[in-house]
Amino acid sequence: MYQVKHGYKEEEYIDSTGFNHSRCYYLCFCGNESYFSMNQSVTQKNARLVRTLILIIIGMFGFGYALVPLYDVLCDITGLNGKVEASAVKEVSYEVDKNREVTVEFMTSLNELTPMVFNSEMKKMKIHPGQYYRVNFYAENKTDKVMIARAIPSISPGQAAEYFKKTECFCFSEQTFKAREGRTLPVRFVVDPALPKEYKTVTLAYTFFDNTEISVQK
């Protein structure tokens, strides 16, 4: 059995928020109410706290969404994840580094729900940084319907992505293919001579996605 050893009438109990507990304890002997149920002040404090916490919760929900642009900004700055420019860069002339050779590999793949033929005319080529090159890809719609498809590029290693510049690419916009249409898709690119020395091979990979459904709905 527990016992109330002594009352708190003489002593003041004020907590960190400045709430005087001793007063309400006193009240519970005087008034015909129990300790907390009558205590307006605790109810008000609860309501205030709940409001603050709900604001934090809404804020954190927003923070989750804020991570999306933050992530893109971070990837742009660092060139991480092989993210590359989604639009053409202006053609500037670099000093061609004839003494240095970099191997550029080309990879083509299809999303599993994309009925196409997709390949590149060469698997890899040796290039000099600073010089512009053109390489052709070939894509063909295997269906009997119009297809709107989009190629998503990726560069490995990710850190090399910012040095790989494209002045022309079929990946900058959606490509519309008529039924059974096949055509050649060129890419014009240059590797910035500032590419750190340790990178001897850079891989450019494209994946084609069938976006017909999404594009039509939009």
């Binding site: 919760i57 809404i58 954190m60 929900f61 927003g62 923070f63 989750g64 969404y65 991570l67 999306v68 999303n111 989009r150 998503i152 994946t207 996605f209 069938d210 976006n211 999404i214 709905q217 939009k218």
Partner: peptide, 26 residues
């Protein structure tokens, strides 16, 4: 918990409302 709720909501809109938070095609 709100961040997780946000993440799964993004999955939901990616699948049903044509957003492309996680969809490489978009």
């Amino acid at each position: 918990m709100p961040v997780f709720a946000g993440a799964v909501t993004m999955l939901l809109t990616d699948r049903f409302f044509n957003t492309s938070f996680f969809d490489a095609a978009g």
